[in-house]
Design a binder for these strands. Structure first.
Length: 643
DNA sequence: TCTTCTGAATTTTTT
DNA sequence: ATTCAGAAGA
């Protein structure tokens, strides 16, 4: 029987894109590196490439699309389905971490890992490091001067990501901690043991342990390399050493890899990303074809002129120069309000003006370097009741009540999870750091959930509450309802805590309901927790009290990557904000700040405003004058409209 | 004396 | 939201 898949006229690949895009989309076997300038139709190229492969007889189940966010892969595959047909739905897509997690779940028996392992997110891993910091023997002598868990985690992570030893990383990044190198090394060992004994893995383990598995186990390697014959990697400039290694391993034997990225937009080195990966792609994959996409379909030329000017000063990178057919258009505006307050008021004026010209609020974005740079603006927006959404900074899943609910679920799924035990016990009155640690220790060693009550100390102030907690957990784990029902019943149990702890508990309760709904598609608790840990689900666009869905966008530059707006307003373009003071110590970090500004300005389609407040407030010095960011100062003034 | 509770200060970017 | 220091409690 013959079936016809196509639900539309055949795609005329050659006519629907420009020459270099077509060259990438239609390239044959072997490694290809696509250097895709900002706004050059990178996503479109990947979408068409997936369609082209399927259209030309490649089995969709043997295609893997690797991205940095699940949303990105879903969007791209969704577009490819609409472009071609349902066969594309069989393509595998996901993040490096999710692929790592599924490899570990599938082959856990080969590496002494419980298949129901818990994935520690960043704050879990900080908690574990904090425990290590306090429990290693002999104890650390001067705890006050010792780095915080967050710093320890950065050091260890960087050591893994770069391949340098812990001592080397400290010497380079924070020499003032040099004398603690040996202690941090001991903490790392303790932390590794801790993870092993509690059946948990952290983000880095998802990569390192799956790499190790593929490298050491021939059967597994054959299995995996046969599974995917064509691999596409998005945002290759943001891969770290481990991720590049993983791509190399996954493509073992066929080398059918298409890596897409832009070295000028590499802005995640703090997370271990190394844009040298993209420069070295041809060494890893010999004979790689390099294709550059330089035609920009997004911005008017005057905006690109500024963008080109900014990136021209960069020390290294693939040479490229963006150009656009949209030759006419306004020059970017450079505004110099007196103070932060004036800056906020200026933005209100601009937004109002645009609105009067019929431009919807959500086509305007205000971008900044760090989450707190928008505090004053947020206050002003609230004052005049201008609706806005903010991206970057705190995330849905990072809010305390969601983490609490998830910690309960984790305990149900893996009762060895000491960190989650400690977290939920601390919610109970009269249980603090010490008691929660002790109880968590005891609880995580008990054989069955049902037996918990037997090890609970009686007659303490907290005994009844803890018993209540144990009963509820037992009840929920025994329930045979589906996942949302279980979470509902947990939420019911949590309600009194929320009431006691938060004034806005109705809102938080609604968010817990959302969590229950999000769990509906999952077959098991383990799978749900797995996805939640790797990629926190995004908060749904909530309508505010006036039913507004059209909102001004406030975003960190990092969170704005890959997006575009008609109007972009970059605020705080001053020294000390961009570049951030943290970057001044290392020339590589400073270069990354340049790329950040580049990413910010290339988000704009028609209008770009760069705001440089003339003064700033310092807690110690009071009101002090600012200096224009060096990256803006480099640009000839005649490229701007000054205000 | 050991723990918990409370309030004040601080925060680069985040899969 | 998290962390820290000091007060109050057991």
């Amino acid at each position: 029987m013959t079936t016809t898949h196509s639900n539309r006229t055949p795609i005329d690949y050659e006519r629907e894109m420009n020459r270099s895009q077509f060259e990438a989309v239609s390239s044959g076997a072997g490694p290809v590196l696509v250097i895709a300038g900002a706004g050059s139709g990178k996503t479109r190229t990947i979408v068409y490439r997936v369609a082209w492969l399927v259209d030309h007889g490649v089995d969709p189940t043997s295609i893997l699309l690797l991205t940095f966010t699940r949303k990105a892969s879903q969007e791209m595959l969704g577009r490819a389905i609409r472009l071609l047909d349902d066969r594309v739905a069989l393509v595998s897509g996901g993040t490096f971490h999710s692929v790592g997690a599924s490899i570990l779940r599938k082959y856990s028996r080969f590496i002494d890992l419980d298949a129901s392992f818990t994935i520690l997110d960043q704050s879990d891993s900080h908690d574990a490091l904090d425990i290590a910091r306090k429990e290693i023997r002999p104890p650390i002598e001067d705890m006050k001067a010792f780095p915080k868990p967050r710093t320890i985690s950065e050091i260890i992570g960087r050591s893994l990501g770069t391949g340098n030893s812990i001592q080397e990383v400290i010497g380079r990044r924070c020499p003032h901690f040099e004398s603690f190198g040996a202690d941090i090394e001991r903490i790392r060992e303790f932390y590794e043991d801790f993870k092993k004994s509690h059946h948990s893995v952290d983000y880095d383990d998802l990569l390192t342990r799956s790499i190790e598995l593929i490298e050491t186990n021939d059967g597994v390697r054959r299995d995996i390399c046969n599974r995917w014959s064509h691999i596409l990697v998005d945002e290759y400039q943001d891969t770290n050493r481990l991720q590049a290694r993983m791509v190399r391993l996954l493509a073992d034997g066929h080398d059918n890899v298409m890596a897409v990225g832009d070295d000028s937009q590499s802005i995640y080195s703090f997370r271990g990303a190394d844009f040298n990966n993209i420069m070295r792609f041809s060494e890893l994959f010999s004979g790689a074809r390099i294709i550059k996409l330089e035609e920009n379909f997004r911005s008017v030329q005057p905006i690109l002129d500024v963008a080109n000017g900014i990136i021209q000063g960069a020390e290294s990178g693939f040479h490229k120069r963006l150009f656009s057919e949209k030759k006419n258009g306004a020059k970017p505006m450079l505004a110099r309000p007196f103070s932060e307050k004036e800056q906020s008021l200026l933005i209100l004026r601009i937004v109002n003006e645009l609105r009067q010209h019929g431009i919807p609020l959500n086509d305007v974005a205000v971008l900044f370097r760090a989450g707190f740079h928008s505090f004053d603006l947020e206050a002003e927006l609230t004052k005049v009741r201008c609706p806005y959404v903010k991206y970057g900074g705190f995330k849905f899943v990072e809010s305390a009540h969601i983490k609490d609910a998830i910690a309960h679920l984790r305990v149900i799924s893996n009762k060895n999870d000491k960190i989650s035990w400690a977290r939920i016990l601390k919610l109970i009155p009269h249980v603090g750091d010490k008691t929660s640690q002790t109880l968590a220790n005891v609880f995580s060693k008990v054989g069955e959930l049902e037996d918990l009550a037997t090890v609970l100390p009686k007659g303490k102030k907290y005994s009844d509450s803890v018993e209540n907690l144990i009963n509820s957990i037992n009840e929920i784990s025994r329930m045979d309802g589906n996942l949302p029902e279980k979470i509902d019943s947990l939420n019911h149990f949590l309600t009194p805590y929320l009431q006691a702890a938060y004034d806005n508990y109705p809102k938080r309760l609604r968010e817990l309901d959302q969590l229950a709904q999000m769990s509906a598609p999952y077959k098991s608790l383990v799978e749900f927790l797995n996805d939640v840990a790797i990629e926190p689900p995004e908060r749904e666009i909530d309508e505010d009290w006036e039913g507004n869905t059209e909102k001004l966008v406030l975003s960190t530059i990092h969170s704005a990557k890959g997006l575009e707006w008609g109007t972009v307003i970059l605020i705080w373009a001053t020294e000390g904000k961009i570049p951030s003071p943290m970057s001044l110590g290392d020339p590589d970090d400073l270069e990354e700040e340049r790329r950040l500004i580049y990413v910010a300005v290339t988000r704009a389609k028609d209008r770009l405003v760069i705001v440089v407040p003339q003064t700033t407030y310092d807690r110690r010095l009071g009101v002090i004058p600012t200096t224009t960011s060096r990256f803006i100062d480099e640009i000839p003034v005649d490229q701007f409209e000054t205000h």
